[in-house]
């Protein structure tokens, strides 16, 4: 795997690489180099399976991070390829030419994050949200609680407990009070 990473490093200049586990690596590449590296990994290195395509919203950096998770059935290694794109003008190249099923991920990302994938089939169709009018709901500047209170009628009298505190009070009370029984935490 190290050998492979070095090989890719020679080909293109990626920004960072992380080894999470023995079978899980991440590399960060530039937006323009994505297609090149995906096609290389798929055709030459045996990463034939696109496990998922997911986005993370980095509101503070004003960026979206896209993760393309590939899997190699021969050496049983996951390889995540991270790409950072601009949050304001969120647009990414569509990869449905490489993996046909990726159109579904791209459709979902388009709906939930508002990321545009020009050329991806059926990308404009709504996936879960039919007739959504607000900003895409998975963006972090969308306040779901506020929207829920505004749109759906809250039933009064709802109360919430902090599970840890509540359980300490109700269930483990005798353990907490008795000095003889020591718990692992304290």
């Amino acid at each position: 795997m190290e050998y492979l990473l070095n090989k890719i490093k020679k080909m293109i200049k990626f920004e960072a690489s992380i080894k999470q586990r023995d079978d899980l690596y991440f590399i960060t590449v530039k937006k323009e180099q994505l297609e090149l590296i995906l096609s290389y990994l798929r055709d030459n290195e045996g990463f034939t399976h696109l496990a998922f395509l997911q986005a993370v919203d980095y509101l503070e950096d004003n960026k979206f991070q896209l993760t393309y998770m590939l899997y190699n059935y021969d050496i049983k290694v996951n390889l995540g390829i991270k790409v950072y794109i601009d949050r304001e003008k969120a647009e990414m190249v569509s990869i449905h030419k490489f993996w046909a099923h990726s159109w579904q991920y791209q459709r979902e990302l388009h709906e939930m994050y508002g990321i545009n994938f020009p050329g991806s089939p059926r990308v404009e169709e709504s996936f879960v949200l039919e007739g959504w009018e607000e900003i895409p709901p998975m963006r972090r500047d969308f306040n779901t609680l506020e929207y829920s209170i505004k749109t759906y009628y809250q039933r009064p009298g709802r109360s919430t407990n902090d599970p840890a505190k509540y359980m300490k009070e109700k269930m483990y009370k005798k353990y907490a009070e008795s000095p003889k029984i020591r718990r692992d935490n304290d």
Partner: peptide, 15 residues
């Protein structure tokens, strides 16, 4: 009844 654990969700009804 009242939204349950999804009370603050953007996509599920509460009542």
């Amino acid at each position: 009844i009242n939204g349950g654990m999804y009370y603050d969700s953007y996509n599920t009804i509460n009542r």
